[in-house]
């Protein structure tokens, strides 16, 4: 039986930024797979390396100040080996991108029609008429009303939600098998967020593409993801199917995050869970030992491995914590 390859396979990816003569890893040994027909959420707080991971996959780093190691395998190619010209073909054609700030990813001087049709022009050989039909089809697909009119508008003439729909239309233009969305709804109001998330789930259903959805918002994860990877200080610390992660979180960081979500109070003294200390900066991050150890000082040092590996909780559930079986919060019984 031939082993099916994943749609995208990230192996031991390390991305370091240069500080003087030294590179400090913002992504520090990440391995992940993305399958067809799934939404993989990557969740973590700001600075944990989510955007760096996305831009590393897309080959968008300045090589002078960045050092990337590892593999990003797509269709038997290691993308990290590609030259700029080939990478350009992959971006847009095979991998679509959606970023947080739709205004930043649109050209203010070009009409919506021209921006979408340019994406098509670059990557396909449709004639003018076919292109126009495809632009209309895309605008319809992303739920833009009166597409004939809207496509003549400039970005600033649209609301934030409409702009993000246009960005999604551009990302979808060439039916890419892989879509990477970095905080696509973070700048939007909650009702618009709900619409955009529905749209992404629908698109995923229709096209069967694989989506990497990056977010800091556990609510967004719960609403959309099939699988979740939780990131802390450049590493994946827990990975599980979405139901499993919310029902049975194992890593102390995942559990802490879930406990600090604001909820309805149960009495005067009810308080939100707070994690000890802060996330250190890249330069100060300890590179030895468990990255999370300084934040759970009540667990004795002897209790953890030198460098915790991913332990298997169940076949699809992995956690980077030695003590996952009997971890307890401060003051909590074992």
């Amino acid at each position: 039986m031939a082993v099916e390859r994943s749609l995208l396979e990230i192996n031991n990816l390390e991305t370091g930024f240069r500080f003087g003569d030294i590179y400090h890893n913002a992504v520090d040994g990440v391995s992940l797979t993305l399958e067809n027909n799934e939404i993989l959420a990557i969740v973590g707080e700001s600075g944990c390396g989510k955007s760096t991971l996305a831009t590393s996959i897309m080959g968008l780093h300045d090589p002078k100040n960045t050092e990337i190691k590892g593999e990003v395998i797509y269709k038997d190619l290691n993308l990290l080996d590609l030259n700029e010209k080939l990478y350009n073909r992959i971006r847009g054609n095979d991998i679509g991108m959606i970023f947080q700030d739709p205004l930043g990813s649109l050209n203010p001087l070009m009409t919506i029609y021209r921006q979408i049709s340019e994406a098509l022009e670059y990557h396909s050989d449709l004639n003018e008429e076919q292109r126009k039909a495809r632009v209309l089809e895309l605008l319809n697909q992303v739920g833009i009303p009166r597409p004939e009119q809207i496509m003549k508008n400039y970005p600033h003439e649209l609301s934030g939600g409409m702009r993000q729909r246009v960005v999604i239309a551009i990302a979808l233009a060439n039916k890419p098998p892989v879509i990477i969305a970095d905080e696509p709804t973070t700048a939007l109001d909650v009702t618009i967020q709900a619409q955009i998330l529905d749209l992404m789930v629908d698109i995923q259903d229709e096209t069967g593409s694989g989506i990497i959805l990056i977010t800091h918002d556990l609510g967004v994860v719960a609403e959309t993801a099939d699988r979740v990877a939780v990131m802390y200080a450049g590493q994946i610390v827990e990975e599980a199917p979405v139901e499993e992660l919310f029902a049975n979180p194992k890593h102390p960081y995942t559990r802490s995050l879930l406990n600090s979500i604001p909820h309805e109070l149960e009495g005067e003294d009810d308080e939100l869970h707070v994690i000890h200390g802060t996330v250190p900066s890249l330069q100060k991050l300890p590179r030895k030992g468990c990255r999370f150890a300084p934040r759970i000082p009540w667990i004795p040092e002897e209790a953890h491995e030198e460098n915790p590996v991913l332990h298997e909780v169940s076949p699809n559930h992995k956690v980077r914590c030695t003590c996952w079986k009997d971890f307890h919060f401060e003051g909590e019984d074992k």
């Binding site: 909650v190 967020q193 709900a194 998330l197 918002d217 609510g219 967004v220 993801a225 979405v242």
Partner: peptide, 13 residues
């Protein structure tokens, strides 16, 4: 507005 708040329970998605 209330119905648009993401639900933290993936099983009732």
């Amino acid at each position: 507005l209330l119905s648009a708040i993401p639900d933290m329970d993936p099983t009732t998605r």
